[in-house]
Amino acid sequence: MVKSHALRLWLAQRITGALMAIYALMVGSVLYVQHPTEYGTWKALFSTGWMRAATLVFVLSLVWHAWLGMHDILIDYVKPALAHRILKNLVVLSLAVYAVWSMRILWSI
């Protein structure tokens, strides 16, 4: 049987999407309840262990999910080979930067 690479990517997009949806609902409710309008509460929210861990999961899911989505867009609309390669590399680079940046933000509080 052929290795199901395309299927795994299809699944990955859905699983990362679902993980982010759960995070959004969780954090959304916390924000609604705590209503952090001043710096102290806002900072405290991001300083807890679980929030950092959950946000890390969110960020990693986001990077993968966004990559799969943007790749799809590039395949459909950017046909010239050079432009396609350049944009693809730009997207990958940006996402890598965002991942590292997010982790720095989370762990330097």
Partner: peptide, 15 residues
């Protein structure tokens, strides 16, 4: 059936 499903394996044909 298996071959037909394998035949739709690449990222474009079905997905």
């Amino acid at each position: 059936t298996d071959e037909r499903l394998d035949n739709l394996e690449d990222p474009y044909r079905l997905y």
